[in-house]
Design a protein around this nucleic acid. Structure first.
Lengths: 112, 112
DNA sequence: ATAATATGCAACCTTTTGGTTGTACAAATA
DNA sequence: TATTTGTACAACCAAAAGGTTGCATATTAT
């Protein structure tokens, strides 16, 4: 199934899994231990993350390690950055207006 | 209902709504026109976006305008940025390794 | 006053999501 | 060899998500 990375990171459990394996790969059981749901439930989350490329599985004996492919978050980063620019631009604009008002106030005060 | 912004942006229709009103507020019907689902369906999406603060509604006569509060995406930005740093750091590391290899190769070539 | 417009919302339906238990099997260990 | 360990996956379930139609209501236009 082709999965959407936005949908994949919508679930808090899946974001927690990403956090766990962000620096170092872990096998399925180790990931599971952190949560109070069944291994199958966690496995399903891992599967969803795999389907959108955020995780790759690597077999090692009878264990399978989950490795994070953080660069797959690029789409999310790009999406949110375009809007960050917009809301920052608005804050800057507001700053300028406030500064202007302050300057005018000073002038008015001096005239008095 | 308290809503999660990650879950709110998971749906492509909702991301499209955000895009539509990012620069200028629009009333509910105008937003609806863009989609081929019912007004009620779009309204539900708007409601979800409102519940997590990404949209505020402003009454104007019989119309209601949806205004985007883009700064509510800060949580998403912060979350993704921490990982962006990590994957960029890894790419930088890879670059260094490759550069090193190239330098060594040159030296080897010179010796030949 | 009547008709048209813009919206909110209840009631209902289908699909998806997130969870469970139980079974199967390969790899490691006693 | 027998047992334990690590994992995959089928089958099932309740709740949530995303959609619909239909009706109520307030505002605007004729």
């Amino acid at each position: 199934m082709r999965r959407d990375v936005f949908q994949a990171i919508a679930d808090p459990t899946r974001r927690e899994i990403i956090q766990m394996i962000a620096t170092t790969p872990l096998n399925v059981n180790t990931v599971t231990e952190r949560f109070d749901v069944s291994r199958t439930a966690v496995y399903k989350h891992i599967k969803i993350l795999t389907e959108c490329g955020l995780i790759v599985m690597r077999q090692k004996g009878r264990e399978r390690f989950c490795e994070a492919k953080l660069e797959k978050l690029q789409a999310v980063s790009d999406w949110v950055e375009q809007y960050k620019k917009m809301w920052n631009a608005r804050f800057d604009l507001l700053d300028n207006v406030l500064e202007d008002l302050q300057t005018k106030n000073k002038k008015h005060g001096n005239k008095k």
